[in-house]
Design a protein around this nucleic acid. Structure first.
Length: 206
DNA sequence: CAGCCAGCATATTT
DNA sequence: CAAATATGCTGGCT
């Protein structure tokens, strides 16, 4: 397990699963996970509607709802594989989670834009655990004050590669001060499944 | 070289 | 004010 640190950024990175186990978890998830369809695959940004450039699914404890970008997503009940991964993350980090957002990037064209995980129902003090399975992908952090043409400060972005079977733990206050993204990588031809384990507050108020 | 790719600023309206 | 988007531009690499 090693530390990734910068001003206001605090992450831990580790290989959680050896290759063989990661392979079988990946295969099981490809069979088990049911991704969102219909309206839930659309997103509205700057007044325009787009198809989300990846597939998404939400699992978690009964009754939990996760809201972002104006849509409300209900958690499906945990599958055995997801429980297994969740418990492995808890064992490695000492943190407990009641929800997981799954993003599936079918190849290097699928991606995710710059954002922070600052939803209302997330406790900003709880870390978010990101498990990667499948194709390795680059991952980029940028400080919020180092964005835009006339940014206040010059702070270098932090880049890393998320490997098959890896765990990235994003600790407070990383998610408040830094944006992160999964840029497109046209040369990547195979899928990556990413699971971000979170703790959602029951009565989400911030 | 030409074509592709990556990085980054910007669009626009709720 | 800020946005889990795409696009257009620049500059670099193959």
């Amino acid at each position: 397990m090693w530390k990734i640190e910068a001003e206001g950024l605090d992450c831990d990175y580790a290989l959680l699963f050896p290759k063989k186990e990661a392979d079988s978890l990946y295969t099981q998830l490809e069979e088990e996970v049911v991704y969102l369809t219909g309206d839930k695959t659309k997103i509205q940004v700057f007044g325009k509607v787009y198809n989300v450039p990846r597939k998404q699914a939400t699992y978690g404890d009964a009754g939990l709802t996760y809201t972002y970008s104006g849509m409300s997503l209900q958690a499906s009940p945990w599958t055995p594989t997801l429980e297994y991964i969740r418990d492995a993350v808890t064992k490695a980090t000492g943190q407990t989670f009641n929800f997981v957002l799954i993003n599936r990037y079918k190849d290097g064209h699928d991606h995710m834009g710059e954002h922070r995980d600052d939803e209302r129902e997330l406790d900003p003090l709880c870390p978010i655990a990101s498990v990667s399975l499948g194709a390795a992908r680059d991952f980029v952090f940028r400080h919020r004050e180092a964005r835009g043409k006339q940014c206040r400060r010059q702070i270098n972005p932090v880049k890393l590669e998320l490997a098959h079977g890896s765990l990235l733990l994003m600790n407070s206050p990383t998610n408040t001060l830094w944006y992160h993204s999964l840029p497109a990588r046209k040369r990547v031809l195979t899928p990556r499944i990413n699971l971000t384990f979170r703790r959602i507050l029951q009565d989400g108020k911030k």
